[in-house]
């Protein structure tokens, strides 16, 4: 991928991901305010999971971004994602066991953001391996 194409891909990715994150912000606030105002609504489970839709959009934006790159970069992204998944699984499992010993309970909701965040942190280290 040439530098100009790379920059264009980066811009498109930021726009797609930014749009998804904005939608997520709207969906999470809307969902929570509805649930606070209507705790007994028969639609509460449906409304509670609405933020999953923009989350899917964000994941789709990430996948599209990865597909724009050549095979080495796809390899690097995949390897980093595998490490992120392993670290997240081990960390959440270990913390779950420590909850048995009295640590405060953390919501499972944090698993996906932690994994995506770790992916971003691990990515430069994997990239360096192939330089």
């Amino acid at each position: 991928m040439r530098e100009s194409e790379k920059k264009q891909a980066q811009r498109r990715y930021r726009a797609e991901l930014g749009g998804a994150l904005l939608s997520y912000t709207g969906a999470i606030f809307g969902s929570i305010s509805f649930l606070n105002g209507n705790p007994d609504s028969e639609f509460r489970f449906f409304v509670a999971v609405i933020p999953v839709l923009p989350t899917l959009l964000a994941l789709w934006a990430i996948i599209r971004h990865v597909r724009r790159f050549d095979e080495l970069y796809r390899h690097i992204f995949s390897e980093a994602l595998a490490y992120a998944a392993i670290v997240t699984a081990l960390a959440t499992f270990t913390y779950g066991l420590m909850e048995n010993a009295g640590l405060p309970h953390l919501p499972i909701l944090w698993t996906l953001p932690v994994m995506i965040g770790l992916w971003g942190v691990i990515l430069p280290f994997v990239r360096r391996k192939y330089q």
Binding site: M1, R2, D70, E71, L72, Y73, H75, K129, Y130, Q131
Partner: peptide, 25 residues
């Protein structure tokens, strides 16, 4: 890299034997 349709980094990684190309490449 231009002729192969890949990045310069990919060519470098293959040359330094840090990355094995796919069969199509």
């Amino acid at each position: 890299a231009d002729q192969l349709g890949v990045s310069r980094q990919t060519v470098n990684a293959i040359e330094t034997e840090k990355y094995d190309p796919s069969l199509p490449l």
